[in-house]
Design a protein around this nucleic acid. Structure first.
Lengths: 236, 236, 236, 236
DNA sequence: TATGAATGAGTGTTCATTCAT
DNA sequence: CATGAATGAACACTCATTCAT
């Protein structure tokens, strides 16, 4: 029993296994260096089956990108508390973002690194997702500006750059948190929130932004059992 | 004659031509998708000569990474005005950084994207360079804190995260500036400086950080003639 | 109902559907390029069923060849009017031949091109059929010679070559008529008959052979409804 | 020594060896069933070299078709004696044709069978060659008609069919001669000439066309040494 | 009777790398 | 100093064929 050669699965299940394996291998190796052989083996199936279900390496990669882009945006969207003021919304969104990327590091690599590197088609697909998020952040910044004053002091065009910088910093911190032992998603989110909201100047004059009381603990449990990693029945 | 196959160049020159070509191809295609054939052809030499001088694809890539990492750190170091206060130093360093990455986009791709993706060895080589810069930034932040108060309010560990976020934001903005028409290095630097120094909070209360008077104009001229692009003698 | 997936047909019917599909695909693509997948899909059944009924690609091809060889020889045999003099018999045989090949172009491709190309086994099967026809023609030539004189001037061995040339010309004209718009079976037969019976010499001195009065019109109706084309229940 | 691994040949030579091998394999197996592995092995080189010089299986096949089409048309053209009357020209052309096809049976298979079966592109290339020959024959028939009478009795359109039948018969006889032991090119030519010129009718009344005196013997020697077959240094 | 699920073996093609000159 | 000639090893992809139901 257990990890033996589980055979004759329904198509939908096998497809998810293949995508899991593909995300893992693509994430670790990149598109070019990933081999269909390795993906098939990791998925516990033969290569032809991968082709039967997913057509080609390109299509397989595309399916990975689409699945993970959707998963990430949905995680962020689900994490945002709608009723809060702007900084509270930003905070909750950042936490969801860092939590998701920490839980699915391979997926994050695929989206953040490999999809942008391999071909316009995938770069475009990811760009759409990213613009989603940038737009969300932009709107939060604008909302915060409205909340704070009668007239907005921030010129239109500048906001774009700021949102870009914020998202860029978030992406970089996600990489950093993923690569650095002992940095939790919450800490990463707090660091960024501080940086973004108060700025270095304020931080140094002793007026940091502080996270709201958090009764939820570090992890919100995921619906499906357990953290990521390839959920696959290994052959052999 | 004229653009004909320039032959019998001294070794050092040929090597630089090869590295120029290699940086270009690696930057555009990534390590795996770059072919030694294309590099050799672009360098205007035969493939065996590339192997004679640079041993293997891996070593060639490594040489690219080392050369460009050194070039970038030196550009930043050279750009920093030592006498200034902390924010002035940060500003000048950022400007040098964005100027260099804008001028050498392929090199920046190699360092920022491909070297980190292809194998621990190169990731490590780049990490060293990055830590150089992060350390420099960390020290600036600490210096600024010392300038501003008797006792630093920032906890030790937090500074690491902030420096990381700042550098990450810089890297992302470099990508963004490279990909977005009409965004100059100076603008990118200003946006980031604003973001970092004042923070969104201050920006919204109308107290942005402002760049110092700049008598230098947009470009500081580079020693070697003209902007990047592969400096290679093309055959026929 | 209607064009829906007709299920649970009796074996004999299903087999004919498969052969129809197979003849079509083999005729269009050749043995090697034909795929069992395409054949099964065109036949409206699943691949395992094809294997259940017809064992292997080779056997399937063989069944096609046998069925179509028999169909062609029977068509020719049925077309010949036994009572006529030799030239009349030849004429009627040729007409039947050209009519059948025009109606079943895929079958003709299978027999004339692909079976002879793919493996001795099939070449032999077709050779048997061809020799049938060559023998029939040979005997007609000999009969004509007997009709015309007391003693035959044609040496034994020569007749074989002549029959071969006649049949070869017929085959080529069948291809030509199949590929050329506006050439009917009757015209092809007439051209060949002229060529064969009178020869270029006589044709040029103005004494062509002329077809007998033809009360039948261009087509003799086929028993089964309509012209060829794959008689297959398409799914969907 | 001898057939050992002859290495480091100049490119032009290797290319011809590859084409020789390819014509042989394509001729025997057809396009689809021919494997690049077999061709490379027969040519005595590694597969990558075949690709380096000839790009792809398709291009390789195309090169074969072009080379052999040119060789055949040139052989026929060179065989025709220009000064003779029409029947003499036809006779000499036929002899050249049958001689060439007998000497290069694989090439003949490639042209006559496989090129016409595999893809429009090749069919078209061969069709051009064939039309060359058909045009030549057509013109001979017309010339003969002019020689024989004041006014031509043959209707325009009919000539096309006749030429087609003649060429078709020739092609079929070439196959037949190639497959039948003891049938020489000269005999095949004579049979066809008889058939075409006199027709069965005249043949049976005892007035066959007869070939002119032939002082040359059966074979005209070819310039390059020896008959076809793959001229290749076998490895191992 | 009929099929969804699955694969071993092979194909065309590419690429980093090395001789021999 | 420089290269034309050559290859081992791998990769993406396909196909005839079988098993479990």
């Amino acid at each position: 029993m257990g990890a033996g050669k589980t055979k004759r699965m329904p198509r939908a299940v096998r497809e998810q296994q293949m995508l899991d394996a593909a995300v893992h291998v693509f994430g670790q190796r990149g598109y070019m260096a990933a081999s269909m052989d390795e993906i098939a083996e990791l998925a516990g199936v033969s290569k032809p089956l991968v082709y039967l279900y997913l057509n080609s390496k390109d299509d397989l990669f595309s399916a990975c990108v689409r699945r993970e882009a959707r998963a990430l945006t949905e995680a962020v969207r689900a994490g945002v508390r709608p009723g809060l003021p702007a900084d509270g919304q930003l905070w909750s969104g950042l936490r969801a973002f860092f939590t998701h990327t920490a839980r699915h590091p391979d997926a994050w690599q695929v989206l953040h690194v490999h999809a942008r590197t391999h071909g316009e088609r995938f770069a475009a697909e990811v760009a759409v997702m990213r613009e989603d998020i940038v737009a969300f952040v932009t709107q939060l910044i604008a909302a915060a500006a409205r909340d704070a004053h009668r007239d907005p002091h921030l010129p239109e065009g500048e906001v774009a750059g700021l949102a870009e910088a914020l998202v860029g910093a978030a992406e970089s911190l996600a990489d950093w948190a993923g690569a650095t032992e002992g940095v939790t998603a919450k800490q990463a989110a707090a660091t960024l929130m501080n940086f973004a909201w108060a700025g270095l100047g304020d931080l140094m004059t002793g007026r940091p932004w502080s996270p709201p009381e958090d009764s939820e603990g570090e992890h919100e449990p995921e619906p499906e059992g357990g953290p990521e990693s390839v959920r696959v029945a290994q052959a052999g």
